[in-house]
Design a binder for these strands. Structure first.
Length: 281
DNA sequence: ATGGCAGAAGCATTCTGA
């Protein structure tokens, strides 16, 4: 089962590239970020024609997340819920559409677009850390239900120096600071692991290249898009890769898709053998 | 220290991103 995440930086501008990629890769679940479109304007039909269900949580111009899936999503939730920080009802948490979650055969897919944070001395940075703290308490709640989790998306954080092409240059700065890394580790705790690092221990693997300064051509990138999975799923993981090829497209997103291949057959064989659980054209 | 590049809104230029 292929599960992918991709910050597409506008669903409307990138639609044909996304369709091409789906036809090429055939993912079972695709989590999108920065769709930048209100729900009623999301090009749902383009995905339905390919046999996918679509769940969207968007807004005008900024942010926006979506889940495209061959299996119908269950228990779809938009935004944070059931966690103590969200109960404070912080308005900005509601206004910025950055999280959508859904269950697929007992696995909870959580698709996030973590705030960028601008720079460490800005108000936006405080919002980023608050948002991550809220995500941590959201996951604490999920923990109590003993669910298998796949937390994926654009985290806007390089977890380690080897996830940055020039770590010295960016040391302590935005996406590389200890404050952000600690906040991220507090989300992951001991329950979620970085799927990519189960296979690849070396530097030189990037999921984002700045549009500026020929960053892609010079391969000056960062690894800030991640797929974290519950420890219990690690034995089911067949691969975790970054597909950098779409970054070479004409008018590309600045992010590349990341995907895992999960062997879920033995978790619930009946579910996957029941054709009613899949999309019918 | 700053700008560089891209998208959306909307029609000149600003805001935001990373």
């Amino acid at each position: 089962m292929l599960i992918a995440t991709w910050n597409v930086n506008s669903i409307r501008t990138r639609l044909s590239q996304i369709i091409d990629w789906i036809n090429q890769v055939n993912p079972d679940i695709l989590c999108l970020q920065e769709t930048k479109v209100m729900d009623e304007s999301f090009p749902v039909e383009a995905f339905e024609e390919l046999g996918y269900y679509v769940e969207v949580y968007g807004q005008k111009s900024y942010n926006g997340v979506a889940i495209i899936s061959k299996i119908k999503a269950e228990n779809v939730k938009k935004g944070f819920y059931g966690c103590k920080d969200f109960d404070q009802n912080i308005e900005i948490f509601i206004n910025q559409k950055r999280l959508i979650s859904a269950d697929f055969n007992g696995i909870k897919i959580i698709n996030v677009y973590v705030p960028n944070g601008s720079s460490l001395n800005s108000d936006k940075f405080g919002y980023k850390i608050n948002w991550l703290n809220c995500l941590a308490s959201f996951l604490d709640e999920q923990d109590k239900k003993d669910e298998l989790i796949c937390l994926m998306g654009d985290f806007n954080i390089a977890p380690a120096n080897l996830d940055i092409h020039d770590p010295k240059k960016y040391e302590g700065g935005i996406m590389a600071s200890e404050i952000e890394r600690n906040a991220l580790n507090n989300v992951l705790k001991n329950r979620l692991i970085d799927s990519f690092r189960l296979f690849e221990k070396n530097t030189g693997h990037w999921s984002w290249w700045d549009y500026r300064n020929n960053a892609y051509e010079l391969n000056k990138g960062w690894r800030i898009d991640h797929i974290y999975i519950s420890k219990e799923l690690s034995s089911k993981l067949k691969s975790s890769v970054i597909d950098s090829s779409p970054r070479g497209n004409l008018r590309p997103s600045d992010h590349a898709p990341v995907m895992i291949d999960l062997n879920l057959k033995d978790i619930n064989e009946d579910f996957f053998e029941d054709e009613d659980n899949f999309f019918e054209i």
